[in-house]
Design a protein around this nucleic acid. Structure first.
Lengths: 227, 227
DNA sequence: GTCAAAGCTGACCATATGGTCAAGAATCAA
DNA sequence: TTGATTCTTGACCATATGGTCAGCTTTGAC
């Protein structure tokens, strides 16, 4: 019978692992580009360099393949978002927050677009996650932000809108890559561009929310270190 | 023969106009939700309350229907983005910019999502527009922002990243509506929420970019009027 | 009322879709 | 070598896709 409960666990032989990886990578690209309905198993199979039957053999169905990709992406999210507490330095936390979200857009652009496509389509598969886990996560961070505001470490802005601001402005560089490249006239954004954008966003958010350093509370609203 | 060169011009009888409107509205919804490939004429026809043949009769093909929707959306964009000059008040211009973009997300959420879907898919139909018209528009605004920075009216931030910041953070409330609603636990965002978000974004951007009022250049970095 | 133009739509077509299956090929522990 | 397990894949199926078309009805100017 079955060996493990978690299908996402790495199991099976080397062949299986290799083929599954190829299929997952191909599927992420195709789903991201065309959405769930618009993606075809034929196209995924071609990108993966396998016959369509083989894709079905490993993944069972289009639906389970798609769900598996979403779950993998959510794992990446969860791995990124470590804990914070009200004792931490707001500027550092916000900077780290922006940086890690920006790196997510950089390292997993297809995954980011897959996620965006799912939400754009009304989040038919992620409703539960959004209203559950993710909501709790946001609420807990919001509570920390509020405490910072109460302590005078930052302006009393609405924490949820702030989180959305950071999410959107970083996610943008994955989801709207085609627009960014078209307008800037580049072939691709390099590490230097990303570093610049990260610095810009960090600066605007920290300064815009009046974040102060806990030690020197009086002034010096922005330190803005490159790293 | 043909009567006009511009197919987007309103022409034809009342019946045509009415049916075309119904089809365009339905198609915008379906395309926004499922992308170009994922949308089916059958689904569009059902939403419009017409037989599939009738959709083809008016629109010719799926492709032309889609292109027509994109063109309509680009017209809305162009209508929104009026001219600015370096003589204007930076704070006012940025505030108006954010406000109008926010209203676009509010008034045309389906259109915004349609646009997002197109970009997400690599902008196969909008490459020309992005690298041409829109790029010119961005460059001209960027020049104004730079002049403001030179005059000391705002920090010397990269104007293009600033424009992307405003675009993404406002567009977010249309494209990621499902996420926003799921996390906030609401059924919909009302006018009051939107007003609050607009004020928040305006505040963060203006303060975050160190925008000063031209008259009182010394201090008062944020006036933050509700309207 | 006449009649051409516009509107309407079910039947139809070639193709593509997600998915099944059976039968063979490769792998590997014993 | 054996035998069981895993892997591979072309043939096949029901359905859905975008699009065509012929023939019908409705509309509106005269």
């Amino acid at each position: 019978m079955a060996k493990a409960e978690h299908p996402s666990e790495q199991e099976g032989g080397a062949i299986r692992r290799r083929n599954e990886q190829a299929i997952l990578a191909a599927a992420e690209r195709v789903f991201a580009r065309h959405g769930y309905r618009g993606a075809s198993l034929q196209a995924i199979a071609e990108v993966a360099g396998l016959p369509k039957s083989n894709v079905l053999y490993y993944m069972g169905s289009k639906r389970t393949l798609y769900v598996r990709l979403l779950e993998r992406m959510m794992e990446r999210w969860n791995a990124m978002l470590d804990d914070i507490s009200a004792e931490d330095d707001p500027a550092e936390v916000l900077a780290a927050f922006i940086r890690s979200k920006m790196q997510m857009s950089r390292r997993h652009p297809e995954g980011s677009r897959l996620f965006a496509s799912e939400i754009l389509g009304g989040a038919p598969f992620l409703q539960e996650y959004l209203r559950g886990e993710l909501r709790d996560w946001v609420q807990s961070r919001a509570a920390v932000f509020r405490e910072w505001a109460d302590r005078g470490l930052m302006d009393p802005v609405d924490p949820v809108w702030l989180i959305f601001l950071i999410w959107s402005s970083t996610q943008h560089y994955a989801d709207f890559e085609a627009q960014v490249l078209g307008i800037t006239g580049r072939e691709a954004l390099d590490d230097d561009d990303l570093e610049q954008i990260t610095a810009f966003l960090t600066r605007v958010v920290i300064k815009g929310c009046g974040v102060k350093h806990p030690a020197a509370r009086g002034e010096d609203p922005v330190s803005l270190t490159g790293r």
